[in-house]
Amino acid sequence: MHGLQLEAVSNAVLAPLDLSLAPGEALAILGPSGAGKSTLLKIIAGLLPHRGRVIFAGRDLTGVPPHARRIGYMSQDLHLFPHLSVAANLRLPLLFSGLSRREQTARIHRTLDLCAIAHRAGRRPATLSGGERQRAALARTLAMRPRLILLDEPFATLDGATKRGLWHELDRLRRGLGMSALIVTHDPEEAAALADRQVHLNHGQLNAAAIGTLRQARRPQPAAGSAYYLCNLHTNYAEPQNGAPNVLNDERR
């Protein structure tokens, strides 16, 4: 069981809220600016103090520091380490993963390929385009193979065509890796493209009436002409069928 449960989680911004996320499920959190969406993600990531309990994979994370939670978090500003190349951005956290040097290198290559950013492996973040930076940050988050990823307005700064291409890729990657996701956005179209379910957060309170299920059919396809590199995902990292483990799930440590 790798689900997420929030029990009466609150702080100065958030009213006590309960929320649960099933393993492999993606939930979009919508709401206006200042509603507490980012605060909620930071609480789950362990970056902000709070009341209540955050339980992940059956483990109460109260008092567990962020580096020991094994929850992937990608902020809107990405925060790629500017002094390191893209590949080294992936390498740095893997140094503390317990993987051997060879395993780290294999993981870096594979993840960069998956995120279609391998051709920029030696570049510093400042030399990348906006879309490439998003891919690099996503690759860095996914390289740790977390069971849960928290995405805070991941594509807010991108233009429409690039954004739509990345939505599709992210959705396939997430499913291919069997990860749960919490995605903060204020774009209903993005929520529909990335999430199975959505909730609305307003003034620090969850709006239960707005909880709904998003139909697969509403997911937009990548815009014509946008980069679409995930043929590898189809061939090598196909989604698990009927709960069968896939290649990337087996990689986890």
Binding site: A45, G46, L47, H67, R69, D77, H79, P93, F96
Partner: peptide, 17 residues
């Protein structure tokens, strides 16, 4: 920006490192 340290933390990098 504190976000760099926060990012490193959520990626599993211990405080000293």
């Amino acid at each position: 920006d504190r976000g760099y340290g926060d990012s490193a933390a959520t990626l599993g990098v211990p405080p000293f490192w």
